[in-house]
């Protein structure tokens, strides 16, 4: 099945004295295409680790992570980097745009990582940017954008390769609530209309109305929160 699956995923670190520090404890979760799932938790709860494992940036210590029927544990680092490029769209935090690329190039660089940029890619990028309301700012650099506009650029970038999985890392950090709502609404809208499986890590409880399910993570344990 497509989407993203965690099967009994555990991640631990070993410190110098040999003590195990468990960051993720036996986490199981399935996100289907078209679903937006939120993961909340206090800092240090393991939510960044969770997102990093989902995004194939970190290997689980045990258990299986399956993205679009591909078991991540069996991939080489080169294959993992290709999978990230093809299957996963990362929505990073506002400041994490490339400072010397204009809005349009922020999206096109993703295509460039694969090879050539075609006219169709350009059209698609413009279409995405229109979707996030940035059609008038294609040539602007991140330094000339507001926080909300930057985040919307990041969202559009995450969809550029038409990935099946969308992972968002604190997409509302450093945004005021009006902008935060707009941004999450946009993510939810994109996820539904384009049928993606999406996980959003956030501490922002105001956004839950847009999510299909909300999980709470604490001390590495994932629990479904009743809405």
């Amino acid at each position: 099945m497509s989407g993203i699956q965690f099967k009994n995923v555990t991640k631990y670190y070993q410190d110098g004295a040999g003590t195990k520090l468990t960051v993720l404890d036996n986490v199981s979760l399935t996100v289907q295409p078209g679903e937006l799932v939120a993961v909340i938790g206090p800092s240090g709860s393991g939510k960044s680790t969770f997102l990093s494992i989902a995004g194939a940036l970190l290997q689980a210590s045990s258990g299986e992570v399956i993205i679009n029927n591909t078991n991540l544990t069996q991939l080489s680092s080169k294959q993992v980097s290709k999978l990230r490029l093809d299957e996963i769209g990362f929505i990073v935090q506002t400041s994490n745009l490339v400072p010397y690329l204009n809005v349009l190039d922020q999206l096109l660089v993703v295509k460039k990582m694969k090879g050539k940029i075609t006219a169709a890619d350009k059209a698609f990028a413009k279409d995405l940017l229109k979707g996030v309301g940035l059609e008038g700012k294609l040539k602007k650099y991140p330094e000339h954008l507001s926080g909300g506009e930057r985040q919307r650029t990041a969202i559009a970038r995450a969809f550029m390769n038409n990935p099946d999985i969308i992972l968002a890392d604190e997409p509302t950090a450093s945004l005021d609530s009006k902008r935060a709502f707009e941004v999450v609404e946009l993510i939810a809208d994109f996820v539904k209309t384009r049928n993606k499986a999406a996980i959003m890590v956030t501490h922002d409880e105001r956004m839950f109305s847009y999510c299909d399910r909300v999980y709470h993570i604490n001390d590495g344990k994932l629990k479904l929160v009743e809405k």
């Binding site: 990230r84 490029l85 093809d86 990362f90 990073v92 990582m113």
Partner: peptide
């Protein structure tokens, strides 16, 4: 910045 680009799929070669 390079970390972000790697996260969105850039290879070392790129």
């Amino acid at each position: 910045q390079f970390g972000v680009m790697k996260a969105i799929g850039a290879s070392n070669g790129f």
